[in-house]
């Protein structure tokens, strides 16, 4: 059974009694170990879909099953717990805690987890190593480059060993070189460590790093295709 299964999902925002439908009924499934890009222009509903899939927001109709359990059965704290345990988030604007070290930033999700404190240091160190920032462990994040900041965010998303990592325009604030490094890191996570990754982007170039692209337009799925010519950033660029 798929890790994520969406059937006829709709989402209508109600603001001051004015209804704004955003998702008009989308259906797809995502298996463990996939690397899927959700693509679409702004206003297409891709961010809304990410919020619903990421347990940050509810949905109006249809069904969203995560690990074969209907997402609407989770409420309040249960949603917080599932975000903490099963999901990792990477944002366009990094969202790191300023004036804190790389180590402190990566540790943040553990505060809200039930993982014993004795394991924290190892988990954090391992996550930082995975993204290749061990030499920056004690640096204040404000001293890092954009690409490094995003890799800190990736390490933070990894630290609780989630089932899925959501990356919302992870290269949007980066130049192409650092963006390439971030995409390479995500590909490594998927290929070498078997992490399921859902990437949200409006750039075809970025989306082509994934194995599969779901295109969304006006709240409906336009196409759902395998990537034929997958892009890879050279390892040499990453080691910079």
């Amino acid at each position: 059974m798929p890790l994520i299964e969406v059937r006829n999902l709709t989402k209508v925002y109600v603001n001051d009694e004015i209804e704004t439908p955003v998702l008009h009924g989308v259906s797809f499934g995502i298996e463990r170990g996939e690397f899927v890009a959700i693509m679409g222009p702004s206003g297409s509903g891709k961010s809304t879909l990410l919020h619903v899939l990421g347990f940050l927001d509810g949905y109006t109709n249809g069904s969203y099953r995560f690990e074969d359990k209907e997402a609407s059965t989770y409420e309040g704290d249960a949603m917080s717990h599932i975000r903490n345990k099963k999901l990792g988030f990477i944002f366009q604007s990094f969202n790191l805690l300023a004036h804190a070290s790389v180590f402190e930033n990566v540790k943040l999700p553990l505060f809200y987890s039930d993982i014993p404190e004795s394991e924290w240091t190892k988990l954090v160190t391992d996550a930082i190593e995975t993204v290749g920032l061990t030499h920056r462990t004690d640096f204040d994040v404000t001293r890092l480059s954009g690409g490094e900041k995003q890799r800190v965010a990736i390490a933070r998303a990894l630290v609780c060993s989630p089932e899925v990592i959501f990356a919302d325009e992870p290269t949007g604030n980066l130049d192409s070189k650092s963006g390439g490094g971030v995409m390479q890191t995500l590909q490594d996570l998927n290929e070498k460590h078997g992490h399921t990754i859902i990437l949200i982007t409006h750039e075809t170039y970025t989306a082509e790093h994934a194995r599969r692209i779901i295109r969304i337009k006006d709240g409906l799925i336009e196409s759902d295709t395998e990537v034929v010519a997958r892009r890879h950033t050279t390892a040499g660029m990453l080691m910079k």
Binding site: S80, H81, R83, N84, K85
Partner: peptide, 16 residues
């Protein structure tokens, strides 16, 4: 606000 949003996304509950 952003920090609060981040903490919530990472699993902080209302009580936290």
């Amino acid at each position: 606000t952003k920090e609060i949003g981040l903490r919530k996304a990472l699993g902080a509950t209302y009580k936290d």
